[in-house]
């Protein structure tokens, strides 16, 4: 094995890793923000919204992320330049960049998968605890914020941890739309040095480190919340 290329490319790997982290964290934040209402309306109704949410989850979970990513980047992305004047607008630098499309695709994916997880989580909170919250005089929003949501998240915390790890390992797909995140950098190394396996091993090592950090972080958070019923 030959590793002499590593010192030269290490800074670029670090940049790539930073891009991976950004993609992951932003997508999880946006995706979970959407997943909460998507899960909730499937439990509370109204019916049409519940169907819409269910349909969204089914489509997102039933199609490959790679195809979603390409449809959004090459499909939606190619529609924008045809809008008159858009090249001169302040939006253009963002629309031209691939990163926002990746954020969009990954957020939708997280929203679809985690919306389904949250549906089960909301449904799993004992009705009696919600009744107790209403009986003490809480408004519907207070019931949600103080009891329903925290109880739901508590129940599915280990599941969510696993889901986020899976999302992390899906991020190399972003390399296919010109985003040089960690895996993208390893491809550059391969092209420029003709070394195939070393860069792959190195980037695999980076993902393991990232996964480990993520797991430790979530384990720490999980220990902060009380156990489920003994």
């Amino acid at each position: 094995m030959v590793w002499d290329w590593l010192p030269e490319y290490l800074p670029r790997f670090m940049e790539g890793l930073w891009l991976t982290v950004q993609l992951l964290v932003i997508s999880i934040v946006i995706g979970m923000t959407l997943a909460i209402p998507i899960g909730l309306v499937q439990v509370t109704g109204p019916r049409p919204l519940a169907w819409l949410a269910k349909g969204f989850c089914t489509v997102v979970r039933g199609t490959p992320l790679l195809i979603q990513l390409w449809l959004i980047y090459y499909g939606v992305g190619s529609l924008f330049p045809s809008i008159p004047g858009i090249r001169e607008s302040f939006l253009w630098p963002y629309l031209r960049d691939a990163f926002p499309y990746a954020i969009l695709a990954f957020s939708i994916s997280v929203a679809g998968y985690e919306g389904e997880v949250m549906r089960g989580a909301f449904r799993g909170v004992p009705k009696g605890e919600l009744e107790a919250a209403r009986a003490i005089g809480m408004s519907p929003f207070q019931v949600l914020r103080r009891v329903w949501l925290p109880r739901a998240v508590q129940n599915v915390f280990p599941t969510l941890t696993g889901e986020f790890i899976l999302t992390l390992k899906a991020t190399p797909l972003a390399a296919t739309i010109t985003i040089y995140e960690a895996f993208g950098i390893s491809s550059i190394v391969r092209q420029e040095t003709y070394r195939i396996y070393e860069p792959l091993l190195f980037v695999a090592f980076l993902y393991i480190c990232l996964s480990a950090i993520l797991i430790l972080l979530f384990r720490y958070l999980e220990n902060k919340i009380p156990k489920r019923s003994a």
Partner: peptide
């Protein structure tokens, strides 16, 4: 709705199955 919430806050309910908030 506000009245209902106010009334409930003045009616202290104790349930058969306790219904304490587990978190």
């Amino acid at each position: 709705k506000k009245q209902v919430q106010r009334f409930r806050s003045q009616l202290g309910m104790v349930f058969q199955s306790f219904n304490l908030w587990q978190h």
